[in-house]
Design a protein around this nucleic acid. Structure first.
Length: 439
RNA sequence: GUGGCUGUAGCUCAGUUGGUUAGAGCGCCAGAUUGUGGUUCUGGAAGUCGGGGGUUCAAGUCCCCUCAGCCACCCCA
């Protein structure tokens, strides 16, 4: 016998896990669509040359790569942004600009696993391509904010920054050519503290202590967003790019405030840098305040030239990616996942062995109103059927023996309270809807 | 990829300094005089002690390898 098992970092999803997963996907889809983002899909497998070298040496190492039986050098996508770049380069003429798309799909990374980190996981990306307008940076922020509200979070923080202020500052300090190294160190600020970040910068770039002090002084600016912004503006004064970044940040923050995003949910955080090199403007990371240890659950940013490797056409854009599986791990730990193992709300008991046709008709009637119903497949004892309904997490049971059917009725049993009422068959959908509205 | 910790029934774990037929709780299945679950009672199924090799008269218990999980580094969703 072959031992049934799954690969490291790859998982099966049982109904209890898959139901909230699908619900989350539905929510993301609904929010994205409401802003006019259109769905696309791309292949899981691409020519390796398409994917290689786009996310840095680290992502190259993490790529699942092999030769197919035709001898082609192929690799599995490790994010949705690089395939998007190829996609727009290939189809720009048909798409028209600006182009807004969302893409919910699985990606693969052969890195070491950890809590909330898998080798196969799903991302829910949305991007606006073909415009440099700050309006799109603002909209991106609003979408992320609305997305988390729609999922059911209230305690979260969108951290926002702008690469231009960082690179502007580094230019000004004469560290411009070491930007990547400095940003990588800065990214760890929250985790290891300013002193160690300073040490790392010195070690990797040979910066002077004056340079390090300036960087750290900047990165540890604190206070309200406005106060930090003033500090940022002062620090980058005189550097055109830095000033531009500060102005962009100011525009995003003020627009979001005007749009009703509470101040405590949008936090200017000049230390976040994002690992990926292609970001050039606004940067986003989203943290759950009750579970910040799990890391960012939705990240993104603006890039000047997404598809430069595939086309001469310059395609700027901005977007973000919801880390569905990491978020689900977090929600599970926070006890936010219901444990129902059925997607249907109601169970019709197969009570009287002779009345299957009536049960099927009842189920069809309820389904027609948009409520999910399952008919128990065997005429077992009622107690057993109710036990099944209870364990699976059905909200209501529909019980009709020959007595009820003779009267054209059915018992609608509330499995949460245990009470039941006799209802005319035609009114059953409405009765269930009332119970569902209660929660 | 590197380092540390862990791995006993579906789940959470107990298993004395290596020594008779490996246990518990929860869950699961079936019953408790033929139409009502979540409580209770009774009974039942279920473990090659992650896998492989070694040391020993004897290994769940010691050693090595391997696989998987967790943590740190790295990176990131």
């Amino acid at each position: 016998m072959i031992e049934p098992r799954t690969l490291k970092g790859f998982r099966d999803f049982l109904p209890a896990a898959m139901i909230p997963r699908e619900r989350l996907i539905d929510t993301a889809r609904r929010v994205y669509r409401s802003y006019g983002f259109a769905p696309i899909d791309t292949p899981a497998l691409e020519y390796t040359e398409i994917l290689l070298g786009k996310g840095g040496a680290e992502t190259d190492k993490q790529m699942f790569r092999f030769h197919d039986s035709g001898g082609r050098d192929v690799a599995m996508r490790f994010d949705l942004t690089v395939p998007l770049a190829r996609f727009v380069a290939q189809h720009a003429a048909e798409l028209g600009m600006p182009f807004k798309r969302y893409h919910i799909a699985t990606v693969w990374r052969g890195e070491n696993t950890q809590r909330g980190r898998y080798r196969e996981f799903m991302q829910c990306d949305f991007d606006t391509i073909g415009t440099r307008s700050i309006a799109s940076d603002i909209e991106t922020t609003l979408v992320v904010h609305e997305l988390f509200l729609a999922i059911g979070f209230t305690d979260f923080e969108i951290h926002i920054n702008n690469r231009k202020v960082l690179t502007g500052l580094l230019d000004k300090l004469g560290l411009g050519d070491k930007a990547t190294l400095v940003l990588r160190a800065l990214d760890k600020l929250a985790k290891i503290g300013a002193a160690k970040v300073g040490e790392e910068i010195v070690a990797t770039t040979g910066a002077t202590s004056a340079q390090v002090d300036a960087v750290l002084g900047f990165a540890t600016l604190a206070g309200t967003n406005d106060a930090i912004l003033d500090g940022v503006a002062k620090a980058v004064a005189g550097n055109a790019r830095g000033e531009e970044g500060a102005a962009d940040l100011r525009a995003v923050l003020s627009a979001c405030a005007a749009a009703g995003v509470p101040a405590d949910r949008l936090k200017l955080d000049v230390a976040i840098a994002r690992g990926l090199d292609y970001y050039t403007g606004t940067i986003y990371e989203t943290f759950l305040t009750k579970l910040s240890s799990i890391g960012s659950v939705c990240s993104g940013g603006r890039y000047d030239n997404l598809a430069g490797l595939y086309t001469k056409q310059e395609l700027p854009g901005v977007g973000a990616s919801l880390g569905l599986d990491r978020l689900l791990t977090a929600m599970e730990e926070l006890g936010m996942l219901p444990k129902a193992a059925t997607p249907a709300e109601a169970l019709v008991a197969y009570f009287d062995a002779e009345r299957l046709h009536d049960y099927l008709a009842l189920a069809a009637l309820v389904r027609k109103s948009g409520i999910g119903v399952e008919v128990y497949p065997e005429p077992k004892k009622l107690g057993q059927q109710l036990k099944y309904a209870d364990h699976r997490g059905f909200r209501v049971a529909l019980i009709a023996g020959s007595n009820e059917l003779a009267a054209g009725q059915c018992q609608v049993k509330d499995l949460k309270s245990g009470t039941s009422e006799a209802v005319a068959l035609a009114d059953v959908p409405a009765a269930i809807a009332r119970l569902l509205a209660e929660g």
